[in-house]
Amino acid sequence: MANTPQSQKRARQIERRTAVNKARRSRIRTFLRKVEEAIASGNADAARDALQAAQPELMRGVTKGIVHKNTASRKISRLASRVKALSTV
């Protein structure tokens, strides 16, 4: 347990930030899940729309420090290639 006033304050701040970060991470995962579900259903238009909605959300997570830049780029790249393969079939 925190003893000094400063460490108590930091503990409170960390608690608040953790809640915000958890909500952001959950929101990003929801957008990614929508893309995955659209790909699984085989609907190319829905998958494309879901990917376009997910991209800015994922990159916003990068700017907020939730996700590493390379991780976000990798996820977008892999999803985009899967959506593209879906539309060509």
Rank of each mutant, 00 (worst) to 15 (best):
T18Y: 07
A2T: 00
S81T: 15
A11T: 10
S7W: 01
I66P: 06
R29W: 06
E36Y: 11
R27S: 05
G65N: 11
E36K: 15
V83M: 06
P5E: 00
A50G: 08
T71Y: 09
R48W: 02
E36L: 11
G61S: 08
I76M: 10
A44M: 06
K69G: 00
I14L: 14
R17C: 04
R48Y: 12
K69I: 00
T30K: 11
A44K: 09
A2I: 01
R82M: 10
G42F: 09
K75Y: 07
K34T: 11
F31D: 12
R10I: 05
R78H: 09
T63H: 12
N3T: 09
I39E: 11
A2R: 00
L32K: 01
T63Y: 02
R33N: 08
A53K: 02
A47W: 12
R60F: 04
E37I: 04
A11R: 01
A47L: 11
R24Q: 14
Q8C: 03
Q13I: 06
R74C: 03
A40W: 09
K64N: 07
G61C: 06
A40E: 06
V20R: 14
E37H: 03
T30C: 04
R16T: 14
N3M: 08
V62N: 09
S73V: 03
L86P: 01
V89P: 07
L51Y: 02
L86K: 01
P56W: 02
A38R: 14
Q55P: 06
A19I: 11
I66K: 01
R12F: 10
H68S: 09
S26E: 14
R48H: 12
L79D: 10
K22L: 04
N70K: 12
N21H: 09
A19S: 10
R82V: 10
R29D: 12
K84E: 14
Q13Y: 07
A80I: 01
Q6V: 00
A38W: 15
K84M: 05
K34S: 13
G65K: 07
S73T: 10
N70A: 13
V20Y: 13
R48I: 02
P5F: 00
E57L: 06
R17H: 13
T18Q: 15
H68I: 05
E15P: 00
R74G: 04
R10D: 12
S73K: 01
